[in-house]
Each structure stands twice: as C-alpha cells, then as structure tokens.
Amino acid sequence: MSVLVNLIVMLGMLVIVPMGLRLFGSPGLTRIRRLWPLLAAPGAVALWLPRGPAATALAAVYAAGTLALALHAPARLARTRSLDPAEIAVLTALATPSVAGLALVAERSGHELFGFDLEILALTVPHFHFAGFAAALVAGLVCRTTANRPAGRFAALSVPLGTLLVLAGYFVDDWAELAGAVVLTAGMWAVALLTWQDVRDDRQDRTTRTLLAVSAAVLVATMLLALSWALGEATGLPHPGLTWMAATHGLGNALGFALCAVLAWRRLDRRLDPRFAKENTV
C-alpha cells in the first residue's frame, strides 16, 4: 500500500468508524465500541509492515472486529424488523467494513483473493470504509432527519445499492462497475443536496454549519472524479490513474466528506438543536 492510502485507511479505522458507531442508538454495539481501539490498532500497524505472517495476523484481528460489527446487522434486523430506507442504509454501514477487513487480510498476506491483484485489494480497504460505512451511515441519518422524504429515501436506498453494484462490478465487468458508480453518485449527490438544504440550519453554531457545508460541497467534486474514472475504465477514454484518484477522490472523501460529516453529526445533539433529539442517532 502507498503511504497516502495507508493514512486514509488509518483515518477510517481509528477515527471514522469509532466516531460513527457513537451515532448508532443500538445498545448492542456498546461492547464493540469499547473494544474497537484494541481491534483497530493491530490493523493500523499491519498497514506498515511488509506482507507476511505478522502483517496477516494483525490484519486478521481487525477483520474479526469488522466481522463482529457485520454480525450485529442481522441481530439488529431481528430486533427492529424494519427494512425502511434509513434502516437499510444503517444495516449497510454495519456490514461493509467486513469487506474492507477481508480485503486487508488478503492483501497483507499477498493473496490475490478472487483473482484481484493486490493493488485493487489495497484500494478496496479504504473504499468500504468511506463509500461503504461512512456514506451509508450519513445517508441513513439524512433520511431519518428529513422525515423519510422522497429525496431522503432515494439517498438511503441508492447509496447501499450503488455500493453493492460497485462490489458486484469487481466480479462482472467494468460496465457493471460504471452502473454502480452512477447509482452511488446519484445517491451521494442526493445526500449532499439534502445536507445543504435541510440538515444545515441557521440555528446551528458556525462550526457545525461549516462542517455540513464542506461535507456536501466536497461530494460534488469527488463523485465526479469517481464517475470519470469508472467511465474511462469501461470505455477506454482518458481518465485519472489510481494514484491520482487516491490523492483526489480518496483524500477528498476521507477528509472533506467523511470526517467533516461525522464530526458535524456528532455536534448535532439535543443541546444545540431540539430537532435532532431523536434523529441524530440511527
């Protein structure tokens, strides 16, 4: 993995996921939240070690944590018995880090899982932390906060669907991956629009409004980059390379969208704005 990709992945492991888990209202996640630093730290160390048994063992610790998180999804479904759009987005957020965990173990061991080269596996790890966990979680929060309006339901359904289609595209072909990128981009732009128009409010403090505004604005540019890359892969048209995509799309989504969005939603508590007393957790 490159240094930049490693740093982005560490941000997802050590900051985005644990902060995001605090936005879940489910009591069953309490133990996972408490143990997460002990699970994520070995994964972060594994990023910097040479491929081999030591890196694989440490990555497996992190993968076990992501699997425990994924297993909470069917437990939550059994408890809520709900498949409304916001809940689908939340279940997706719980499940997707396990894809990153599996890819990390394979990449650190030097195993080309399902025939994918190690570079693709390395980039799968940040993708399913940010386009998976963070994007789905924020889409679910936006949907719930906007009282399941049609645009909110669209965002909460299209982000998980787009993420699933992108994953399926890995196994099918570049055109399937392009279709996933189109759906995911549409969902993320819906999240951006609703964040800008409905979630952001003059009654909030300046820092919260700024974080929400940045998270929404960044998505416009980063998802355009994702579309251009997927279109180029499918058609052969000129498009950014993976290194450039990591430095622009990847870094922008990690810092500009995910970090700003999670920080903003953490600030949207009942002390600042009564509208979020029930809606700021999922």
Rank of each mutant, 00 (worst) to 15 (best):
residue 1 M to F: 13
residue 2 S to C: 10
residue 5 V to C: 14
residue 10 M to F: 03
residue 12 G to L: 06
residue 14 L to E: 05
residue 15 V to I: 14
residue 16 I to A: 13
residue 19 M to P: 04
residue 21 L to C: 08
residue 22 R to N: 15
residue 22 R to Y: 14
residue 25 G to W: 08
residue 33 R to M: 01
residue 35 L to W: 12
residue 38 L to K: 00
residue 40 A to T: 00
residue 45 V to N: 01
residue 46 A to R: 04
residue 48 W to A: 08
residue 49 L to E: 11
residue 52 G to K: 13
residue 53 P to I: 00
residue 57 A to D: 07
residue 62 Y to C: 05
residue 65 G to S: 04
residue 80 T to S: 07
residue 81 R to L: 04
residue 82 S to H: 07
residue 86 A to T: 03
residue 89 A to Y: 05
residue 92 T to R: 01
residue 92 T to K: 02
residue 97 P to Q: 06
residue 101 G to S: 04
residue 103 A to L: 07
residue 107 E to Y: 11
residue 110 G to R: 15
residue 113 L to S: 12
residue 115 G to Y: 15
residue 116 F to W: 12
residue 118 L to E: 10
residue 121 L to A: 08
residue 124 T to I: 15
residue 127 H to E: 15
residue 132 G to R: 04
residue 141 L to P: 01
residue 143 C to I: 06
residue 143 C to P: 02
residue 143 C to T: 03
residue 144 R to C: 00
residue 149 R to I: 05
residue 150 P to K: 06
residue 151 A to I: 10
residue 158 S to R: 04
residue 159 V to W: 02
residue 161 L to Y: 06
residue 162 G to W: 15
residue 162 G to P: 04
residue 163 T to R: 10
residue 164 L to W: 12
residue 166 V to S: 03
residue 170 Y to L: 12
residue 177 E to F: 11
residue 177 E to L: 10
residue 177 E to D: 11
residue 179 A to N: 07
residue 182 V to Q: 03
residue 182 V to H: 04
residue 184 L to S: 02
residue 184 L to P: 00
residue 186 A to V: 06
residue 190 A to K: 00
residue 192 A to K: 02
residue 192 A to V: 00
residue 192 A to Y: 00
residue 194 L to P: 01
residue 195 T to M: 05
residue 195 T to W: 01
residue 200 R to H: 08
residue 201 D to W: 06
residue 202 D to N: 09
residue 207 T to F: 11
residue 207 T to W: 13
residue 208 T to C: 07
residue 210 T to L: 14
residue 214 V to T: 12
residue 215 S to R: 03
residue 216 A to W: 03
residue 221 A to V: 15
residue 222 T to W: 10
residue 223 M to Y: 13
residue 223 M to D: 11
residue 224 L to K: 10
residue 227 L to I: 14
residue 231 L to K: 07
residue 235 T to I: 05
residue 235 T to N: 06
residue 237 L to P: 01
residue 238 P to E: 04
residue 240 P to S: 09
residue 241 G to W: 06
residue 241 G to S: 11
residue 243 T to C: 08
residue 247 A to F: 14
residue 251 L to K: 05
residue 255 L to E: 02
residue 260 C to A: 14
residue 263 L to A: 11
residue 265 W to L: 12
residue 266 R to L: 12
residue 268 L to P: 01
residue 268 L to Y: 04
residue 271 R to L: 14
residue 271 R to S: 14
residue 273 D to T: 01
residue 275 R to N: 09
residue 279 E to H: 15
